[in-house]
Design a binder for these strands. Structure first.
Lengths: 245, 245
DNA sequence: AAATCCAACTTGTAAATACAAGTATTCATG
DNA sequence: CATGAATACTTGTATTTACAAGTTGGATTT
């Protein structure tokens, strides 16, 4: 395995099945394979990545489990497209389809170390309360219209260079997964309807009394006792929150 | 493998890893193992079920993935307890815990055969549109305060005596599952915030302009092409919509 | 007595192999 | 030409073997 020696640190330590998973997932997301396409057969992937079938199958197992592909015995693995919203609500236009190119993220408060003020309506564990948190605020615009305003808080446990990372176009979860091996598993969410306060009126450009969806989420990760807390406000005038379950 | 020969048909056809999974899952649900317990080690399970480690690991993989257990390298697999809510939003009080005894369902419109007016924001398949639908409206009260108002529409495909069933205290899904073998799998939901119209003002006892969560859901079933459509309005003043994902 | 090391666990990764079962194509036969 | 059988794929299941890596507890040493 000469090749591994020249690969950067955090990638070299990834097990093979994981690397194959990441690559295929990337390719599906990037559209190298599109919906309905037949993935290369397991044996072809074996030859490609120079690993054995159990290793490839482990990668495909996960892709199938997460809804990226559907496997058919005797036929092959068919690309399903987007991941099943892992409970993370995606947005869906009521008028026209919205591609990724129309989504702009504007950072209101860049990631910075803070003390926990509160975790919305959720209670913190002691270890979380003791360490500070990384705090950020973002505004998401679709077709140049502000739709989401979200506040995210992550326990401050050894994320080197995190606050200096450029988060503009990357998904926060992607950064955490690829660079820090922090994987989102699931969580709890609470939904309520409120009327826009002054700040939301300003961000969304809506009058007082305008109804807004508020979403409080406590998201589990693969690290024991580490949760990501996020509060999302959504102006559902033109775009509704949409998700699979 | 003498043992397998005397096992009933549908169990005999299950692969080993699946049988081990089902058994362990049952044992966790039944409390044979309780939360925090250490599961038997993989090698012990191998000996117990007379299979090899990869087979056992495949069963444990799934249990871990579904949240029944958490695995720790060098330590063992720890029982986590209940399965995660499958995304169906339950309600959670902001003030005090709410038991089931405080939930009352009031039927506004008893199940009746109608033509499809519309499936909220979802599009209907042709077969659905051709057959009529079973329509019902319900109001749910928690501690005698109205919290949910929901409209449910089900394709009218051979549900004998359905419209004459008493739905007062039974869950709609339970009736469908037990009497008609129609099982709910998952689905798509769209969430938006609105202000209460006259009807909701009346039902919820709120003033005009009051924010309300609206939930449009298209729910998949085990029967191909058969979906249940439901529209839920929720007054989140005292109770918020809460769910796991 | 306390600290250290080591051995005996645990789960994680990976290979090589074999056969079963489902699907699609090809080719021979009617 | 149409039908059906053979065959060359595909994924599914399962074993065997080997070593890596994390955890625990006991024995040894200081």
């Amino acid at each position: 395995m000469l090749k591994n020696e020249i690969i950067s640190d955090h990638e070299a330590t990834l097990p093979h099945h994981r690397k194959v998973y990441e690559l295929l997932r990337q390719h599906i997301s990037d559209g190298v394979f599109s919906e309905g396409d037949l993935l290369p057969s397991e044996n072809e992937l074996c030859a490609l990545h120079k690993v054995t079938r159990p290793t490839i199958r482990k990668a495909l197992d996960r892709l199938a489990n997460e809804g990226f592909i559907v496997r058919h015995q005797g036929k092959g693995s068919i690309v399903k497209g987007a991941p099943k919203g892992v409970g993370i609500l995606a947005m869906k236009g009521t008028t026209s389809a919205v591609g990724k190119e129309n989504l702009i993220t504007r950072i209101i408060v860049k990631p910075e170390i803070r003390n926990w003020s509160e975790a919305f309506s959720f209670s913190l564990t002691q270890t979380e309360a003791e360490s500070g948190c990384i705090y950020m605020e973002r505004l998401r615009l679709v077709n140049n219209k502000p739709v989401f305003f979200d506040i995210t808080m992550i326990p401050n446990i050894n994320f080197p260079r995190f606050t200096s990372r450029n988060m503009d176009n990357k998904s926060l979860f992607d950064v955490l997964r690829k660079n820090y091996r922090l994987e989102v598993k699931g969580g709890e969410q609470r939904i309520l309807a409120i009327t826009a306060d002054e700040r939301l009126q300003k961000y969304f450009g809506v009058p007082a009394g305008h109804p807004v969806v508020q979403l409080n989420r406590k998201i589990e990760t693969n690290r024991e006792g580490i949760f990501i807390y996020s509060q999302v406000f959504c102006n559902t005038d033109e775009f509704v929150l949409s998700g699979n379950f």
